[in-house]
Amino acid sequence: MIEDRLLVWRFNRGDPAALCRIYEKYRAGLLKVAAALLNNRSGVEDVLHDVFVDFAQTTGRFQLRGSLKGYLSICIANRARDRNRAMQRRSSTSLDEAVLRPSVTDGPEHAAVSRELAAKLDTAMGLLPDEQREIIVLHLQGKLPFREIAELKEMSINTAMSRYRYGLEKIRSALDGELEP
């Protein structure tokens, strides 16, 4: 936290090394938040790119309230939501995006959760309303406490916790329905 305050202080004075350090420090976690929130994961790097370019433009006037990780995670969530909505409104899928869509079950990492289960979780997460999905990802993936999520998203902590719980219940129901025919 103290390191972040110092980084922000240096960033606001135009120090490029501070921006690079912030990027290196949070890049991996933010990519995972984006991957969990985007319906089309080919846009993960684009979302990170946009958020950091926007953040870089705030040099000299950026004011940190709460944690830097929390702020950047919320920016990723907002950008991912905009992108999902834009994609949903498209009348048809464009050629390049369809070709680039990866499968969540690709890669050896998913050995921890079976491929079949991961695919079902993918579907269940994708069906959640944005506001529930975001809070689940920010809390479980981003490791942000509910109080901070509530402050950054300008809602009460009770609302944040309720949305989280409703989201979990829906996922549980979806999995129960799938796994116990």
Partner: peptide, 20 residues
């Protein structure tokens, strides 16, 4: 799969291993 806590643990594992 009846406990919320189980769902949380499962989701944590799933999210942790999402490809990025």
């Amino acid at each position: 799969m009846s406990e919320i806590r189980d769902t949380e643990r499962l989701l944590e594992t799933y999210l942790e291993h999402l490809p990025a």
